[in-house]
């Protein structure tokens, strides 16, 4: 798939385990496997969506990429450079190319800084431009995300959630990154504001050509913005495919159930909903074999014993399931 193009970011077997207690003479060590061996790549200028329910490890994966959380194992390459064990100083340089947009537009902006200072902070950190030049660039950014230039002197509390998310986007774009990791950027917003922010993000991408890693539990938003989508369940990616293919013909039973669970805003459509039994198991004691087997309606004996392989089912549609 995409053999001719080099990926911008390549993640291989990324793992993040949290040791809950070290164990001892009479106690077994307990480990929470938040992310348990995921691999994917993001190509220049594309949007890769990562969906899953709470606790599936999608946010942890996003933070590992920027090394905001140190991964336990695996490797990550940004433009061919291995950043898994890059030094702190080197990571600082790398973060010019990878930026982050956070979920909560309320807590991710420092309440004591003006919007101008917030958006200009990347310039200050990296010592890029100053004085009039910096102010001009800040004003251009603020204007680009649809806020007025006078906003620069105001504080975050004077803005609504959607406007704050625009400030977060302006800050992320300050250094012309090649990749923006967006962790639930619209989940905290009202629907009419969500669509404004999604449209803005897509416009900016067309104009500036950066790639997005779009992490969300909202499948509709992910479908709208992404070119390819990966579905996570309990620390693993269970399926990854082009958006159209994934939504029209999901191969993994979990994806199928997830898609059918979303209420369609159209009362004329009668659908059969697949109701999954029970809850997501704890990532401390994931089920043996395929992690989904205890909730899967097609489960076979083999699913309990062996973990399904991650394989290409054709046309770049990857899935980890014994059925396929």
């Amino acid at each position: 798939m995409n053999g001719q193009r080099r990926p911008l970011l390549e993640v291989r077997n990324l793992e993040k385990h949290y040791v809950l207690n070290e164990g001892g003479l009479f106690r077994k060590k307990t480990v929470l496997r938040a992310v348990d061996g995921i691999s994917f790549s993001v190509f220049p200028g594309e949007t890769l969506g990562l969906v899953g329910e709470s606790g599936c490890g999608k946010t942890t994966a996003g933070k590992c990429i920027l090394r905001l959380i140190e991964p336990t194992a695996g490797s990550m390459e940004m433009e061919g450079e291995d950043i898994t064990r890059a030094s702190f100083a080197r990571m600082r340089e790398v973060r010019k190319k990878i930026q982050f947009i956070f979920q909560d537009p309320y807590s991710s902006l420092n309440p004591r800084m003006t919007v101008g200072q917030i958006v200009g902070e990347p310039f200050a950190i990296h010592g890029i431009c100053s004085g009039v030049e910096r102010r001009k660039r800040i004003e251009r950014l603020v204007d680009r995300v649809g806020l007025s230039a006078e906003s620069c002197g105001r504080y975050p509390h004077e803005f609504s959630g959607g406007q704050r998310q625009r400030i977060g986007i302006a800050r992320a774009l300050a250094l012309n990154p090649k990749l923006v990791v967006c962790d639930e950027p619209v989940s905290a917003l009202d629907v009419s504001i969500q669509s404004q922010v999604l449209n803005l993000m897509m416009e900016l991408q067309r104009e500036l050509g950066m790639a997005y890693l779009f992490i969300s539990h909202g499948l509709a938003a992910v479908k709208h913005i992404s070119k390819r989508v990966g579905v996570m369940y309990l620390g693993k990616i269970v399926e990854l495919a082009e958006t159209e293919a994934l939504f029209s013909s999901p191969l993994h039973p979990y994806t199928e159930a997830l898609l059918s669970a979303i209420p369609v805003p159209d009362p004329e459509i009668a659908r059969e909903r697949i109701i999954l039994e029970g809850d997501v198991p704890s990532p401390v004691h994931p089920p043996s074999g395929c992690r989904f087997h205890n909730r899967c309606r097609y489960a076979m004996p083999v699913c309990r014993e062996t973990e399904p392989e991650w394989k290409d089912a054709g046309g770049g549609h990857f899935v980890a399931c014994h059925l396929r």
Partner: peptide, 24 residues
Amino acid sequence: RGLLDSIPRLDVREDQLGTIPGNV
């Protein structure tokens, strides 16, 4: 109408979402 237009749909393909300008 604006509210219904601004919801991304799973069953329909659209390039641009409808929006309601401004804030509540």
